[in-house]
Protein backbone atom coordinates (compact mmCIF):
# COMPACT_ATOMS: atom_id res chain seq x y z
CA UNK A 1 0.00 0.00 0.00
CA UNK A 2 1.21 3.45 -0.88
CA UNK A 3 2.03 5.72 1.99
CA UNK A 4 1.47 9.35 2.82
CA UNK A 5 5.07 9.86 3.84
CA UNK A 6 6.68 13.18 3.02
CA UNK A 7 8.41 13.86 -0.24
CA UNK A 8 12.05 14.81 0.06
CA UNK A 9 13.32 18.30 -0.69
CA UNK A 10 15.55 17.13 -3.48
CA UNK A 11 12.57 15.78 -5.39
CA UNK A 12 10.75 19.07 -4.93
CA UNK A 13 13.74 20.99 -6.22
CA UNK A 14 14.07 18.73 -9.24
CA UNK A 15 10.36 19.12 -9.98
CA UNK A 16 10.56 22.91 -9.73
CA UNK A 17 13.61 22.95 -12.01
CA UNK A 18 11.77 20.80 -14.58
CA UNK A 19 8.90 23.31 -14.53
CA UNK A 20 11.16 26.34 -14.89
CA UNK A 21 12.98 24.62 -17.76
CA UNK A 22 9.51 23.99 -19.22
CA UNK A 23 10.52 20.32 -19.46
CA UNK A 24 7.29 18.35 -19.32
CA UNK A 25 9.09 15.06 -19.87
CA UNK A 26 11.30 15.50 -16.80
CA UNK A 27 8.32 16.63 -14.69
CA UNK A 28 6.30 13.57 -15.81
CA UNK A 29 9.19 11.24 -14.91
CA UNK A 30 9.44 12.68 -11.39
CA UNK A 31 5.68 12.38 -10.90
CA UNK A 32 5.55 8.79 -12.20
CA UNK A 33 8.37 7.66 -9.94
CA UNK A 34 6.99 9.45 -6.89
CA UNK A 35 3.47 8.07 -7.34
CA UNK A 36 4.83 4.53 -7.18
CA UNK A 37 5.59 5.22 -3.52
CA UNK A 38 2.95 7.72 -2.38
CA UNK A 39 -0.68 8.60 -3.02
CA UNK A 40 -1.14 11.17 -5.82
CA UNK A 41 -2.72 13.68 -3.43
CA UNK A 42 0.48 13.62 -1.35
CA UNK A 43 2.51 14.48 -4.42
CA UNK A 44 0.10 17.32 -5.25
CA UNK A 45 0.15 18.71 -1.71
CA UNK A 46 3.85 18.30 -1.02
CA UNK A 47 5.45 18.87 -4.40
CA UNK A 48 3.12 20.48 -6.95
CA UNK A 49 1.50 23.12 -4.75
CA UNK A 50 4.73 24.30 -3.08
CA UNK A 51 6.48 24.41 -6.47
CA UNK A 52 3.72 26.53 -8.01
CA UNK A 53 3.58 28.78 -4.96
CA UNK A 54 7.34 29.31 -5.07
CA UNK A 55 7.27 29.97 -8.81
CA UNK A 56 4.49 32.56 -8.32
CA UNK A 57 6.43 34.13 -5.49
CA UNK A 58 9.65 34.24 -7.51
CA UNK A 59 7.80 36.01 -10.33
CA UNK A 60 6.60 38.57 -7.82
CA UNK A 61 10.20 39.15 -6.78
CA UNK A 62 11.26 39.56 -10.40
CA UNK A 63 13.38 36.40 -10.30
CA UNK A 64 11.58 34.54 -13.08
CA UNK A 65 9.35 35.44 -16.01
CA UNK A 66 5.63 35.16 -16.68
CA UNK A 67 6.14 32.70 -19.54
CA UNK A 68 7.71 30.31 -17.01
CA UNK A 69 4.82 30.80 -14.59
CA UNK A 70 2.32 30.13 -17.37
CA UNK A 71 4.07 27.03 -18.70
CA UNK A 72 4.59 25.66 -15.15
CA UNK A 73 0.86 25.98 -14.46
CA UNK A 74 -0.06 24.30 -17.74
CA UNK A 75 2.38 21.42 -17.24
CA UNK A 76 1.17 20.84 -13.67
CA UNK A 77 -2.48 21.00 -14.71
CA UNK A 78 -1.93 18.30 -17.34
CA UNK A 79 0.06 16.12 -14.96
CA UNK A 80 -2.38 16.42 -12.09
CA UNK A 81 -5.31 15.67 -14.40
CA UNK A 82 -3.70 12.30 -15.14
CA UNK A 83 -3.38 11.34 -11.47
CA UNK A 84 -6.41 13.17 -10.08
CA UNK A 85 -9.11 13.31 -12.75
CA UNK A 86 -11.69 16.13 -12.35
CA UNK A 87 -14.26 13.85 -10.70
CA UNK A 88 -11.78 12.24 -8.33
CA UNK A 89 -12.99 12.12 -4.70
CA UNK A 90 -9.43 12.94 -3.70
CA UNK A 91 -9.70 16.44 -5.09
CA UNK A 92 -10.09 19.18 -2.52
CA UNK A 93 -13.56 19.63 -1.07
CA UNK A 94 -14.52 23.26 -1.62
CA UNK A 95 -17.32 25.77 -2.11
CA UNK A 96 -18.59 26.47 -5.66
CA UNK A 97 -15.94 28.58 -7.29
CA UNK A 98 -15.34 30.17 -10.70
CA UNK A 99 -12.84 32.35 -12.47
CA UNK A 100 -13.46 34.93 -15.21
CA UNK A 101 -11.68 37.58 -17.24
CA UNK A 102 -13.82 40.70 -16.95
CA UNK A 103 -14.23 42.53 -20.28
CA UNK A 104 -10.61 42.08 -21.37
CA UNK A 105 -9.70 39.82 -24.25
CA UNK A 106 -6.38 39.06 -22.59
CA UNK A 107 -6.82 35.98 -20.45
CA UNK A 108 -3.29 34.93 -19.53
CA UNK A 109 -3.69 35.77 -15.83
CA UNK A 110 -6.94 33.85 -15.68
CA UNK A 111 -5.36 30.85 -17.40
CA UNK A 112 -2.40 30.81 -15.01
CA UNK A 113 -4.56 30.93 -11.89
CA UNK A 114 -7.09 28.44 -13.32
CA UNK A 115 -4.36 25.92 -14.24
CA UNK A 116 -2.53 26.36 -10.97
CA UNK A 117 -5.65 25.94 -8.83
CA UNK A 118 -6.67 22.83 -10.77
CA UNK A 119 -3.12 21.52 -10.43
CA UNK A 120 -3.47 22.14 -6.68
CA UNK A 121 -6.51 19.88 -6.54
CA UNK A 122 -9.30 22.46 -6.80
CA UNK A 123 -12.17 22.35 -9.26
CA UNK A 124 -13.51 25.62 -10.57
CA UNK A 125 -15.60 26.84 -13.46
CA UNK A 126 -13.86 28.83 -16.16
CA UNK A 127 -16.39 31.44 -17.25
CA UNK A 128 -14.04 32.76 -19.93
CA UNK A 129 -14.29 36.41 -20.95
CA UNK A 130 -17.48 37.97 -19.64
CA UNK A 131 -19.04 41.40 -19.21
CA UNK A 132 -20.59 42.68 -15.97
CA UNK A 133 -24.13 41.45 -16.77
CA UNK A 134 -22.98 37.98 -17.74
CA UNK A 135 -20.73 37.60 -14.71
CA UNK A 136 -23.54 38.59 -12.34
CA UNK A 137 -25.96 36.22 -14.10
CA UNK A 138 -23.57 33.26 -13.97
CA UNK A 139 -22.64 33.91 -10.35
CA UNK A 140 -26.31 33.69 -9.36
CA UNK A 141 -27.11 30.79 -11.69
CA UNK A 142 -24.22 28.61 -10.49
CA UNK A 143 -24.71 29.66 -6.85
CA UNK A 144 -21.05 30.58 -6.69
CA UNK A 145 -19.47 31.23 -3.30
CA UNK A 146 -16.10 32.45 -4.55
CA UNK A 147 -15.58 34.39 -7.79
CA UNK A 148 -12.05 35.10 -8.97
CA UNK A 149 -11.88 38.03 -11.41
CA UNK A 150 -8.83 38.65 -13.57
CA UNK A 151 -8.28 41.91 -15.46
CA UNK A 152 -5.53 43.53 -17.48
CA UNK A 153 -6.86 47.01 -18.16
CA UNK A 154 -7.68 49.71 -15.60
CA UNK A 155 -11.25 50.32 -16.90
CA UNK A 156 -12.00 46.60 -16.47
CA UNK A 157 -10.67 46.75 -12.91
CA UNK A 158 -12.96 49.69 -12.17
CA UNK A 159 -15.92 47.74 -13.58
CA UNK A 160 -15.52 45.21 -10.75
CA UNK A 161 -17.34 47.79 -8.62
CA UNK A 162 -20.46 47.31 -10.75
CA UNK A 163 -20.25 43.53 -10.32
CA UNK A 164 -19.99 43.92 -6.54
CA UNK A 165 -22.91 46.37 -6.36
CA UNK A 166 -25.13 44.28 -8.62
CA UNK A 167 -24.46 41.13 -6.60
CA UNK A 168 -25.26 42.98 -3.38
CA UNK A 169 -28.53 44.22 -4.86
CA UNK A 170 -29.44 40.60 -5.55
CA UNK A 171 -28.48 39.58 -1.98
CA UNK A 172 -25.70 37.36 -3.33
CA UNK A 173 -22.97 36.77 -0.80
CA UNK A 174 -20.30 35.43 -3.15
CA UNK A 175 -16.81 36.53 -2.19
CA UNK A 176 -15.06 38.50 -4.91
CA UNK A 177 -11.31 38.04 -5.30
CA UNK A 178 -9.53 40.23 -7.85
CA UNK A 179 -6.16 40.05 -9.55
CA UNK A 180 -4.25 41.43 -12.51
CA UNK A 181 -1.94 44.27 -13.50
CA UNK A 182 -4.01 47.27 -12.29
CA UNK A 183 -4.26 45.74 -8.81
CA UNK A 184 -0.52 45.12 -8.77
CA UNK A 185 0.26 48.72 -9.72
CA UNK A 186 -2.25 50.29 -7.33
CA UNK A 187 -2.48 48.39 -4.08
CA UNK A 188 -5.53 50.29 -2.82
CA UNK A 189 -7.58 49.60 -5.93
CA UNK A 190 -9.11 46.29 -4.77
CA UNK A 191 -10.67 48.02 -1.78
CA UNK A 192 -11.85 50.93 -3.91
CA UNK A 193 -13.82 48.57 -6.16
CA UNK A 194 -15.30 46.73 -3.18
CA UNK A 195 -13.59 43.36 -3.65
CA UNK A 196 -13.21 41.04 -0.66
CA UNK A 197 -9.59 40.24 -1.40
CA UNK A 198 -6.82 40.48 -3.95
CA UNK A 199 -3.93 38.26 -4.92
CA UNK A 200 -0.78 38.89 -6.90
CA UNK A 201 0.06 35.26 -7.65
CA UNK A 202 -0.97 31.64 -7.11
CA UNK A 203 0.38 31.59 -3.56
CA UNK A 204 -1.85 34.56 -2.70
CA UNK A 205 -4.81 32.95 -4.47
CA UNK A 206 -4.40 29.75 -2.42
CA UNK A 207 -4.06 31.71 0.83
CA UNK A 208 -7.13 33.81 0.08
CA UNK A 209 -9.21 30.77 -0.85
CA UNK A 210 -8.15 28.96 2.34
CA UNK A 211 -9.04 32.02 4.42
CA UNK A 212 -12.44 32.41 2.78
CA UNK A 213 -13.14 28.70 3.22
CA UNK A 214 -12.30 28.96 6.91
CA UNK A 215 -14.58 31.97 7.28
CA UNK A 216 -17.36 30.06 5.54
CA UNK A 217 -16.87 26.91 7.64
Amino acid sequence: MKGRVGMNNLLSQDFEKALLDMDQRAATKILTQACEAVEPIVFVEQVVMPALEKIGDDWDKGLIALSQVYMSGRICERLVDTILPPASPNRTSQPAMAIAALNDYHSLGKTIIYSSLRASGYELLDLGRVGVDELVRQTIEHKLRIVLISVLMLPSALHVKQVVERLKQQKCKAKIVVGGAPFRFDQQLWQEVGADATGANIADALKVIHRIMEEMA
Partner: peptide, 15 residues
Amino acid sequence: PVMQMGFSQYFDLMF
Protein backbone atom coordinates in the same frame (compact mmCIF):
# COMPACT_ATOMS: atom_id res chain seq x y z
CA PRO B 1 1.39 38.27 -31.48
CA VAL B 2 -0.18 38.88 -28.06
CA MET B 3 -2.87 40.80 -29.95
CA GLN B 4 -2.74 38.61 -33.06
CA MET B 5 -3.30 35.32 -31.25
CA GLY B 6 -3.60 35.85 -27.48
CA PHE B 7 -0.93 35.49 -24.83
CA SER B 8 -1.41 31.82 -23.98
CA GLN B 9 -1.45 30.62 -27.56
CA TYR B 10 1.61 32.74 -28.31
CA PHE B 11 3.58 31.13 -25.49
CA ASP B 12 2.49 27.72 -26.73
CA LEU B 13 3.75 28.67 -30.21
CA MET B 14 7.05 30.02 -28.91
CA PHE B 15 7.82 26.86 -26.97
